[in-house]
Design a protein around this nucleic acid. Sequence first.
DNA 1: TCCCTTTAGCTAGATTCTCTAGCTACCTGA
DNA 2: TCAGGTAGCTAGAGAATCTAGCTAAAGGGA
Lengths: 171, 171
Amino acid sequence: MEEVPSSGEPTPAAPPSSETSRALRDALRIAGDTRAALARRLGLNATDAAAIDHLVSSPEPLGPVELGNRLGIRSASATTLVDRLVQAGHVARTPHPHDRRRLSLQVTESAVGEVLEALRPMLVGVDRAVARLTPEQAEAATAFLREVTEVMREYVATAPDEPSRARADRD
Amino acid sequence: MEEVPSSGEPTPAAPPSSETSRALRDALRIAGDTRAALARRLGLNATDAAAIDHLVSSPEPLGPVELGNRLGIRSASATTLVDRLVQAGHVARTPHPHDRRRLSLQVTESAVGEVLEALRPMLVGVDRAVARLTPEQAEAATAFLREVTEVMREYVATAPDEPSRARADRD
DNA sequence: TCCCTTTAGCTAGATTCTCTAGCTACCTGA
DNA sequence: TCAGGTAGCTAGAGAATCTAGCTAAAGGGA
C-alpha cells in the first residue's frame, strides 16, 4: 500500500521493498512464537523443545555442552536439561567414539515422531504455500531465505555469551 | 539435493520445492534463536525480550494479561514480568482510557531505541537481502511470506493453553 | 615420558522466574 | 440492583537456570 516514492535512491527496482521487509519481520517474529507453541504441544518447556529441535536438525551429533552453547545456557544447566530429556524418554546418551570425555546425544525415534506429529499442521501449510510458487519464484525464494538465514546465523553467533549487563547504570 | 521424484503428484511445476521448504524451515528455526540472541544483547531474559518485542509490534496497546496470553504465561507471571520491565525502565503503565480495570503498557523511548540498536545488524542484513530482489521477486516473496506467516499464526493460535500432558503414560 | 593447560561433563547450593490459589475492583447484561 | 465475568495484583510453592568448583580425559611441549 504505502509505496514510499523514494527520491533517487539506490533502490532502482524495488518499490514494495519495505513491504517485503515488513512481511519478513512479521514472519520472523511469529516464527519465534512457534517454538513456544511447539513446546506446549509437546508438553515441554521452551528450552527443552528448542533443545530437541537443535538435536534433530543438527547434521552431526551434539554433546550436552555444545547443545548448551547453542541454546545460550551454561554447561551445568545443559546437564540437568539432558537429564530431563533422558528421563522423559526423548533423548539417549551414547559415548563418543573417539573422545572418552564426550557424549553424543541421540533423539529417540518416538521423540522424533512426536515432534513431526506436533509440527505437521505447520509443515502442511508451509508446503502448501511452497507448492503455489512457480519454479522461478521458488528458486528466488530459496536464495532469499538462505541469505536471510545467513544473516540471522551471524546475528546469533555474534550475540554476547552472557546477558550483557547493558547500561544497568540507568538511574 | 534430495529431490524426491514424486510420482504423479500435484506439484507439476516445483522441482526445487523441497529445497525451498528446507530453506524456509532453516530460516524459521534460526529465527527462533534470534529472539534469544536479542535478549542477550539487551541483557534481558528471553521472556522479557519477547514481551518488549510484542509490545513494540502490536498495533494497539496491550495490558499485562493480554501480553501474558501472547507469551503463554499466566496473569500472575505477567504482573511480575511487567514489574521487572517497569523497574528496568523499559515499560510504563498507563491507565486505559475507557476501562478502569485495564492498563496500557507503553514501551519507553529509550527501550525502543535500545531494541532498534540491538536489532540493527540483523535489519541491515535483511534489508540488503530484500534490496537484491527484483520487483517481481519482491512481490512474490511478500505474498509467500504473508501466507507462511498466516500458517504460523494459526499454528500458534491452536496450540494448547497449558503444557498438554501429552502421553505422560509412556513407560 | 611427564607435566601443564584446556575441555567435556557433572554436583551442590543460591537465585530467578513461573505457577497455583485467591483476592479486589470494575464492567456488563438481566 | 445484582450476578457473572474480566483485569490486575499478592503470597507462597515449584521448577529452571546460574555460579562455583570438581573429576577425567585429551593435547602440547620440554
